[in-house]
Design a protein around this nucleic acid. Structure first.
Lengths: 219, 219
DNA sequence: GTCTATACGTTGATAGAC
DNA sequence: GTCTATCAACGTATAGAC
């Protein structure tokens, strides 16, 4: 369910040296920023190198090529991504669990908007780099997640809402605050979305979605 | 509130010839497809020309340069975009008007997903080409739209939900079905989203959002 | 109005000295 | 491991014949 990141010169067995770890981190961080702002094609190795404070040739020493670096960045993102969704279980109280999930997603949109944007651009562009990620395993995992909502429905804890569409509503509404932050700021006359803005947005989403699904507040 | 499209060789006064109209349309259509699939930087004039069935130099004859062509495409999209939102008025019954708006947006996501994707990528990339679009006028227009929801709240027709966040929920949840269609298909094992899929998604959104906002169904 | 040929910058990637 | 120099491919854009 995760991406195969092509190994380069770091041969198996040898532990990563301290300098290697430091440089790889710097490159990955710089790449994440640039890819989020300009997309895959719009980002040049030159820019990433400058942002990481290293000569361009070093990037090719640590990563096979541009695509390899991009896949590595994408892979890091996906790990964080899925883990939050696994916290939901059929035994949870829907009001508590859903509210917590929305808060977590909003927190993610606030603290790692670049990650959300890279994923969004990749999907919009056809998501060919995610083909192996969206494997049979992933669909099974997704079904399992949808089953949690179905269990809540069967237990009479919420309205009979198609779990699949509910999941897309949760993803779409929370990620919107990361991906479209620019529009939100321009339209509301802000320079950036503050922590408080995001918390208010989250409270709002929780109100509408929980009530909309017929979930009674936790006692 | 709209974009200034740089005029090129079509001097004012002269009506567009039939051949010019035909070619410009072909170029714009091809450009829309390519920009949606690969973003601004990821699209080459060469590809657009091939897709439009014209030699590359012709694009530069009809449009000043690549950016001019891109702005023209973007401009076409924005016109369609805003008009649907203007249909809402304070006198409307919220249940009817909101449901109709969600249907319209979903219809838009179904029929013109490329437009939605180009807009999304532009915003994610910082939206510098939309600076003049997001002018003072636009913010005034947006406030006016938010005021409609506030009027409904004041009239006791819906819960006191921040209109601004409600608008972002409407936009985010409906556009998600255009922008993330690839993910939705991969995850649910479809090859494409059918008309029926989109209608079910719309019905679902209407149920959750209307109930979530405390809007009673129209009698 | 149309299209071939080409100028010229930028890109990803590598060779090879250190 | 690091970095300068360089290459081939591709990008936008234009000149100029038709």
């Amino acid at each position: 369910m995760s991406l195969e990141v092509p190994a380069h010169s770091n041969h198996a067995g040898k532990p990563a040296s301290r300098i290697r770890q430091k440089n790889e981190q710097a490159i990955l961080r710089a790449a994440e920023d640039e890819f989020a702002r300009h997309g895959y094609k719009g980002t040049s190795m030159n820019t990433i190198a400058a942002s990481a404070g290293l000569p361009k040739a070093n990037l090719h020493y640590y990563f096979t090529n541009k695509l390899g670096l991009y896949i590595a960045v994408l892979s890091n993102i996906l790990e964080l991504w899925d883990s939050t969704f696994n916290a939901l279980t059929a035994e949870d109280d829907p009001a508590v669990a859903l509210a917590r999930y929305i808060r977590t997603k909003m927190e993610f949109s606030r603290r790692q908007p670049q990650a959300s944007r890279i994923f969004a651009m990749e999907i919009i562009s056809g998501g060919e780099c995610l083909t192996e990620y969206f494997s049979q395993d992933y669909r099974a995992w997704f079904s399992g997640r949808a089953a949690v909502f179905q269990a809540w429905i069967d237990a009479g804890k919420m309205d009979p809402i198609d779990p699949v569409h509910l999941i897309f509503l949760l993803w779409g509404s929370t990620q919107h605050y990361a991906d479209f932050a620019t529009q939100i700021c321009r339209v509301t006359g802000r320079t950036r979305l503050t922590r408080q803005d995001m918390e208010e947005a989250g409270t709002n989403l929780i109100h509408i979605i929980l009530k909309g699904c017929g979930i009674k507040p936790a006692q």
